[in-house]
């Protein structure tokens, strides 16, 4: 172009710079994706040889790794996550409803909201310490499943609350106003109009929160401590272990076979997570279709 009469910056330099920037950003994304692939591939490669029915149905063993299995930890996880779901869902949903439908605008409400936001950022091991001091010791629940579930409940509560708040907020004002106009009370509106509409979103949020809970090791270590559990728990006051702790225990064993066991444990954990996340996404998609 005739523009060369102006002493502008060389177009080539700018073009090269643009190419470099694009290249670097592309590399960044590729590295992220590639790392994920490598991690998963590594776990699968190490764990697949050890992943069989015997692994799923046996108790762990220190002396005979070939006979060891993840049964105790699997049941422990099921117990803990099950109780956690029982406690956290109503509490989380209740808090969300209170904050979105009932709470007056005052200092206490702001404090509650601030609190929830802050709690979401507290490291999970601190929750474990809380559980140790409060549930295990002070409330004398011992290193039991119940203590573990209570801690896990507190840990994932902010996640459920925030997700449920989103779900409640997405219910159009028009629905509520229609119900009020018919003479409904606040609870009738909440229960009859808001909750049914928001329920799938709340459920999705809770399942995602629980899938996070099932992978948490740190707070459970603080509560359960004893890492070698060779029995299936039968009640909420029993001692327990969960899958992440079992994996951690196996990784720490010096013999090479335990690596494979740990990897197989990882596979089980990942499969459970995949299942839970798929359910959550399935619910979310069905709900979105209906809303349209």
């Amino acid at each position: 172009m005739v523009s060369q009469r102006l002493s502008g910056k060389n177009g080539v330099v700018r073009r090269v710079k643009g190419g470099i920037v694009y290249g670097l950003c592309l590399v960044a994304v590729v590295v992220g994706l590639f790392s994920l692939a490598v991690i998963l591939f590594d776990a699968i490669q190490d764990g697949l040889p050890w992943f069989d029915l015997q692994f799923l149905t046996s108790l762990p063993s220190v002396l005979h790794p070939e006979q060891a299995g993840i049964l105790a930890a699997l049941w422990g996880s099921i117990w803990v996550v099950g109780l956690t779901a029982l406690f956290s869902f109503p509490l989380g949903v209740g808090t969300a409803i209170y904050l979105e439908e009932y709470a007056p605008t005052n200092l206490l409400t702001s404090f509650i909201r601030l609190n929830i936001a802050n709690l979401a950022g507290v490291p999970s091991i601190v929750y474990g310490i809380l559980g140790l001091g409060l549930f295990v010791q002070a409330l004398a629940l011992g290193r039991s499943i119940l203590a573990g579930a209570l801690v896990m409940t507190l840990l994932i509560l902010p996640i459920i609350i925030i997700a449920s708040q989103e779900a409640v907020r997405s219910v159009p004002k028009a629905y509520r106003e229609g119900a009020y106009a018919l003479g409904a009370t606040k609870w009738q509106v909440t229960r009859g109009v808001v909750l049914p509409q928001a329920f799938p979103g709340m459920l999705t949020g809770t399942i995602l929160a629980l899938s996070r809970a099932i992978g948490e090791a740190a707070p459970m270590i603080a509560i359960a401590a004893l890492v070698f559990v060779r029995f299936i728990p039968t009640g909420p006051l029993d001692r327990f272990t969960v899958m992440p702790i079992q994996i951690y225990n196996w990784v720490n064993q010096p013999q090479a076979e335990f690596r494979g066991l740990a990897a197989a444990g990882i596979l089980v954990l990942l499969i459970v997570l995949l299942g839970m996340n798929s359910i959550a996404i399935f619910i979310r998609n069905r709900y979105q279709k209906r809303a349209r």
Binding site: M1, G8, G11
Partner: peptide, 19 residues
């Protein structure tokens, strides 16, 4: 623009937008 086709392949769109 001034007897140059701005949609031709040789045109720098960045220089065009300066003008």
């Amino acid at each position: 623009i001034d007897a140059e086709n701005i949609y031709s392949k040789e045109t720098s769109v960045f220089e065009l937008r300066r003008r």
